[in-house]
């Protein structure tokens, strides 16, 4: 399914480029995208490695356990498939906390680890489990209370009130998350595996 989307994007791009006589752009894109992806990988890899290490420390020191104990009663409502006190709950909780504070780059390693531990519970390793989908929807709806990147960008452009948008952001991100969870619940019930 994900693969189909990329194929559609690529085919559309090539067909449109050829029909509008724009082969030059396609050629440069082919060469450039490998370069760009390698650069991006180099950019995120150190951050990823650092936060992977920090999550490990948080795990060993027991901080994650403590955090998850606080949050997991709440989370089990959203993830009925996960057994209580499973490590994935604390990873999901950490991912959400990092997202809420706008630490996107810190949230990703927690998210990847959470996915990995959800995969251990998954019966069919090729098919996404219900908890994975719920987690993903909560994640992509961008549950952020403090959008740090945008505030700093607004500062850069000399906004008189860079944080003016925070309240509007919170409302729209909350509605997005609630909408996502509702449709996920509805669809999960319809297409039971």
């Amino acid at each position: 399914m994900v693969n189909i989307i990329w194929i559609v994007l690529i085919t559309l791009g090539i067909v449109y480029g050829v029909s509008t006589n724009n082969l030059e752009t396609i050629n440069t894109t082919i060469v450039d995208s490998t370069k760009i992806s390698l650069e991006m990988l180099f950019k995120i890899f150190p951050v990823l490695a650092l936060w992977m290490g920090i999550t490990k420390i948080a795990e060993v020191s027991g901080l994650l356990k403590k955090l998850s104990n606080k949050l997991s009663p709440l989370l089990t409502n959203f993830f009925p498939e996960i057994p209580a006190c499973h490590e994935s709950l604390s990873l999901i909780a950490s991912n959400m906390i990092a997202n809420i504070f706008g630490l996107g780059s810190a949230a990703t390693p927690f998210g990847l680890k959470a996915m990995d531990s959800l995969q251990k519970l998954n019966k069919n390793k090729k098919v996404a489990s219900r908890s994975m989908i719920t987690f993903l929807v909560i994640n992509t709806s961008g549950l952020t209370l403090i959008p740090t990147t945008i505030i700093s960008l607004r500062m850069m452009y000399g906004s008189s009130e860079p944080t003016k948008i925070v309240f509007a952001c919170i409302i729209s991100t909350m509605v997005a998350t609630i909408g996502g969870i509702l449709i996920d619940r509805f669809l999960a019930r319809r297409y039971k595996d």
Binding site: M1, V2, I5, V127, A128, M132, I133, L136, V137, T140, S141, G180, I183, D184, L187, A188, Y191
Partner: peptide, 8 residues
């Protein structure tokens, strides 16, 4: 990925 793309 089942319905995750649609829901997201």
């Amino acid at each position: 990925i089942r319905h995750s793309m649609f829901a997201a």
